[in-house]
Design a protein around this nucleic acid. Sequence first.
DNA 1: GATAGGGCTTCCCCTTACTGGAAGGTCAAG
DNA 2: CTTGACCTTCCAGTAAGGGGAAGCCCTATC
Lengths: 137, 137
Amino acid sequence: MNIGEVAIVSGLPAKTIRYYEDIGLVKPLRDTNGYRAFRTRDAHKLTFLGRARALGFSIEDCRKLLALWADDTRASADVKALAKDHLRAIDDKIADLQDMRQTLDHLVRECAGDHRPDCPILQSMARQTDMNSKASG
Amino acid sequence: MNIGEVAIVSGLPAKTIRYYEDIGLVKPLRDTNGYRAFRTRDAHKLTFLGRARALGFSIEDCRKLLALWADDTRASADVKALAKDHLRAIDDKIADLQDMRQTLDHLVRECAGDHRPDCPILQSMARQTDMNSKASG
DNA sequence: GATAGGGCTTCCCCTTACTGGAAGGTCAAG
DNA sequence: CTTGACCTTCCAGTAAGGGGAAGCCCTATC
């Protein structure tokens, strides 16, 4: 399979596949003309990578997952630990975003959104703390 | 104020403040020794930037917000529009993360997490579609 | 055989928003 | 005069690719 075909099969852009080769995630063969020659298992690996990335795993996590996948003697506990760590990271991100969301949503609701310059959103971001107002320049 | 002091006052790392000068967000004066000399309004600007960034606004959005903040004739509608766009972007991100979270959480619950190699997490990421299984290498 | 086109190759720069570090100037204290 | 904390600039790197140039390869068509 050439890169174009494996791109269709795996659902990944050719650019991404070349990048994955660069960083050692896949090692396709080469035809005599220099073209990459992907085997079926390379395609499967790329599909795997696409799924793992879609679940938000980092490239380095994907590298570990691939190693576990390839290891018939793996313990599912190791995979689960990776997944749970990632789940926690996702939860943290969601919490951060929800904090932002709440603050911003509140400000948006407070803002009249008319032709006048008065704006609680700007006021909130400009409000100086005591610490700041003490500093004179 | 030197950069160290304004870093404390604004809560931003000195490195970040230099970067903000590089990209034109703040324009501190210079002392004869070459040190940056921040005025009170520079410090306020940096605090504003820190707040806006904490709400997740991009640097380019921050640039627009600063311009609106500086413009006494602004319409609060313009600020509100920016904020609402950003709120939508946040909502999209949260939705994406929650999708990931749900899938991953499901897989984690399915996985025994023991010494055996059988792992629904890996299986899920490795599962080939019909399209894929048709491709032979 | 020449040509057109599409696919493939490598290479380098660009993105976001900084962070780390090296090499060196400046300032106040002892 | 030295020490140490501050400041300066510049270079490189981060995550995960995307864009695009310059050029080779392959097939079809004339």
